[in-house]
């Protein structure tokens, strides 16, 4: 196979984008070596590809739009939900939440970027972030009741919250429960659990009585370096906040949601 005639476009395409079997590929490559016009064409295609990459490449580096993020979060929660027996009513409620979320997305009010002035739109998220920012930096008294008094902590917080609540277990993420405290809110007492990992990073789980709002899927909020996910489930409003990466925080929030249901 020592043909000297120039490569056709389909042959050049096969060589460049295809996976021709070996003897054929080598033969094409050899012919290209002797085909100046073919090489110029390939060089031109390189420039075309470079131009396309320059035009559209940056889009792939952008963070995911919030709408898509929300859809994925919702799907993750569906996957995380138990699929048997008691799961059905839960699913029905989730479906309603999903519908609300879709309506919300259509109205353009997906994840709020929190600034103090917008706080009223997502009070539970703002309260959780405030609680976290206030107590996470505490060295002496980060919690009122330490995790060592687990039983007392659970009973006390459940009583004040008016709803049974036990601290979720985030050990699989390396976060151990430090303890909890009570904070005032406009709808009564809120329960706050604080966790810490081996590097001293802290996250806060915040639970407060609902204000009658409908259930939601996860919503993302951020205020400076503090990020959080909040949601409404049943009669309670929850938020998980901290300075950990968003992906990790979402995983933690998903586990919290599973364990708190």
């Amino acid at each position: 196979m020592t043909e000297r005639h120039p490569l056709t476009d389909p042959e050049l395409i096969a060589l460049r984008h295809g996976t021709p079997p070996e003897p054929a590929r080598a033969a094409l490559a050899a012919r290209l070596g002797a085909d100046a016009a073919g090489r110029a064409t390939v060089a031109e295609w390189d420039r075309q590809d470079t131009a396309l990459a320059a035009l559209y490449g940056p889009i792939a580096a952008e963070p995911l739009p919030e709408t898509l993020r929300t859809m994925l979060d919702r799907a993750a929660r569906e996957d995380a939900a138990p699929r048997h027996r008691a799961a059905l009513p839960k699913f029905a409620r989730l479906a309603a939440a999903v519908l609300l979320l879709a309506l919300g997305a259509a109205g353009g009010w997906t994840a709020a970027r929190l600034t103090p002035g917008e706080g009223a739109a997502v009070p539970v998220a703002l309260a959780a972030i405030r609680a976290h920012q206030t107590f996470a930096v505490e060295v002496a008294h980060p919690v009122e009741v330490a995790a060592t008094e687990a039983e007392h902590l659970t009973r006390w917080l459940s009583k004040r919250l008016g709803h049974p609540i036990a601290a979720p277990d985030f050990a699989s993420f390396g976060f151990a429960l430090m303890g909890g405290r009570i904070l005032p809110t406009e709808t009564g007492a809120a329960a706050v659990f604080m966790y810490e990992n081996a590097t001293g990073q802290r996250i806060t789980l915040y639970a407060a009585a609902g204000d009658g709002s409908a259930e939601t899927a996860f919503r993302f909020v951020e205020a400076g370096a503090t990020q959080g996910f909040w949601w409404i489930d049943g009669s309670l409003r929850y938020a998980v906040v901290g300075e950990v990466p968003r992906e990790a925080l979402r995983a933690i929030a998903t586990v919290a949601w599973q364990q708190l249901t």
Binding site: G57, I59, A61
Partner: peptide, 15 residues
Amino acid sequence: EIEAAIPALRRYAQA
């Protein structure tokens, strides 16, 4: 895997 495919889909759709 679905999430991982999205950036390329966005790039392609834009082009």
